[in-house]
Each structure stands twice: as structure tokens, then as C-alpha cells.
Amino acid sequence: MTFDLGPALLFCPADRPDRFDKAAERADAVILDLEDAVAPGDKAAAREALVAHPLDAATTIVRVNAVDSGYFDDDLAALARTGYRRVMLAKTETVVQVDRLDGFEVIALCETAAGIVNVASIAAAPSVVALMWGAEDLLASLGGTSSRDDDGRYRAVAVHARSSVLLAAGAAGKAAIDSVYVDIPDLPGLEREAQDARASGFSATACIHPSQVSAIRTAYLPSPEEVASATAMLLAAEGERGVFRFDGRMVDEPVLRHARAVLARGTGQPQQP
């Protein structure tokens, strides 16, 4: 199983079927959300909307409530009435929880202290195709008040969680999805953060508003200068053996892999974690 969606994954409340088609048109994939975006009293209606208004299963993910939330079993029953097979499990903390989604491709959303501590074992679960992390839920689970400081930068604990999820995903050969950027009007800030995500090795970034999709797509697409440099480097490598010097830089196999990744992004080919 592979994860081939992205780079812009758009959350859409599952109790708003009037938004389903628009979200699917604007993003690379839609995350129909049965969890935080839906009030407790509206969850039954959201499940019915999930069944009654189907989207393309190949580009749709369903976020279900946490296993111990009291809503999970009903979410699972609704899923059984659909063709959706990619499921994001909110507040994933253990492999045992992941196993409750046997038969699905699971995106493990690690957004609590327990989830981050156990992320390596979660990533290794066979049904897990990708990992995502959540900043605000993580800080809430720690008793904190905000994932970012006054300058808008992630606090140290959030940086650690982000890195832990990315490293666990990479070690297990799975994709990693970066957390949402909640300051919706700040598109330059989102683009900078998504550029960092792409450069660090994330496969996609989740978002909460259609206006954020373009900024994420732009950030994940290499610049013409990056493509030209990578192309020239790989051409130069064809006549070299081992380490060589190119444009004042030492080039070895890891650097060449970076160049191949740039070209893969530039041509729209799927990224392998």
C-alpha cells in the first residue's frame, strides 16, 4: 500500500454535504471530517451525509473519531456503507487502536503525548500508509495553551513532535503529512511553512480552508531554478565516478537523491517516502 495523495489535503466537515463537491474540485484530496469539525449533536447527520453524498474514493479520506471517544463504532458502521477505504484515525495512540480499522488504509493522526511517544510502533503497523501530527491537540493533551510563540514559531515541544512523526514515517517507509496552519489569512506564512515541510521530506500538508490550497501547491512545486540545477547536476553525474565537485559543491549519492526528488516533484511524479 502506498500513499499517493497531495500535496494539498483539505478538511471538510462531514455534516456539510453542500461543500463536498467544491472541496473535491479545489484540493488534491478531501478529508471528510467526522471528528472536531462536527458538533456532538450533528454527528449522526454527518454520518448520513457521508453515505448519501459520495465522492471519488480514490481522492477522499474520512477522519473518524478516536477509538475511545464513544463515537468510533458508529463511524465505523457508517464507513461500512460507503466505498471509502482511506481512513484518518484521530488521536491515534497505540497499534491496538489502529488494528480496529482492519481492512482500511490508515492515516494515523498522532496528536497526543501518548501518540507521539508511541509513533514508531504505530508507523510500523502494516495497515498504516501515512502519519500526520496535530499541534493544537498535542499541546492541549499536555495542558499547554498554544503550539506557537508570540512570533508565530512552533514551540520546542511541537517541533519535537513534528520531527518525531516525520522520522518515524521515514523509518517505516510511510508518508508524512504536515499539520494544518490555522492562521487562514496568513498565506505567506503558510507557504513558508509548507516549503519547509517539502524540503524536510513531508509528502503533503493538510489545510482547513480552500484559500490555502494554492499556497501549499506552490510551496511543494520546485522553482525553475531548482529544477535547472538538479537537471544539470544529474547530467554532470553521468560522467563521474563516486564523489565529484559541481558548481562549487561536493556531490555524493545523498545529494543526487535530493536532485532526483526535486525533479520528481517538478514533473508531478509520486514521491516515495
Rank of each mutant, 00 (worst) to 15 (best):
A108Q: 02
D18M: 09
D99C: 05
D21Y: 00
L76G: 05
F72K: 13
A39Q: 06
A114N: 15
V62A: 04
L79K: 13
K22S: 06
K43F: 09
A114P: 08
F20V: 07
H53A: 13
K91I: 04
A108K: 01
V64T: 09
V98Q: 10
K43W: 08
F104L: 11
E93D: 08
A58L: 02
G103R: 10
M132F: 01
D75T: 08
R19S: 09
I122Q: 03
L50T: 00
V95H: 07
D42L: 11
L32I: 15
V98P: 12
S121H: 13
A66T: 00
L34R: 02
S127L: 10
L34G: 01
V128Y: 02
A39L: 02
S127I: 06
N65A: 06
Y84A: 15
R47T: 06
A123C: 10
V119S: 00
L34H: 00
A113M: 02
D68C: 12
A77L: 13
A58P: 00
A78I: 02
I116A: 00
A29W: 14
V117L: 14
A49S: 15
K43V: 13
I122N: 00
A77D: 12
A57M: 03
I107W: 00
A44L: 11
A78M: 07
V98E: 05
R47E: 07
E111M: 01
D33P: 07
R100I: 01
V128D: 01
A78W: 12
G115H: 04
C110M: 05
F20R: 08
V51D: 12
V64G: 03
A135V: 08
D68I: 08
A123W: 06
R63F: 11
M132E: 02
V95K: 04
L79I: 13
M132W: 04
R86Q: 13
V51Q: 07
A113F: 01
T60E: 09
R19Y: 01
A77Q: 13
V51R: 08
G134W: 14
R63P: 11
S69Q: 03
P40M: 10
R26F: 03
D18P: 06
W133V: 03
M88S: 10
R85V: 02
A24W: 15
P54L: 06
A52D: 15
P40K: 05
R81C: 05
A58G: 14
A27D: 11
D18E: 15
G103M: 12
A80H: 10
Y71S: 11
V96P: 03
W133T: 10
N65K: 12
D36Y: 07
F72P: 05
R86L: 12
R86C: 09
V98N: 06
G134C: 09
K43D: 00
I122Y: 03
R85S: 06
A58H: 07
A46C: 04
I107M: 02
E48N: 10
G134N: 13
A80G: 08
T82N: 15
K22C: 04
A52R: 12
I31W: 01
T92R: 03
M132G: 01
D99N: 14
A23R: 00
V106K: 09
A78S: 11
V98C: 10
A46M: 05
S121E: 15
D18F: 09
K22H: 04
A44T: 14
V67H: 12
L89R: 03
A78T: 03
E35I: 07
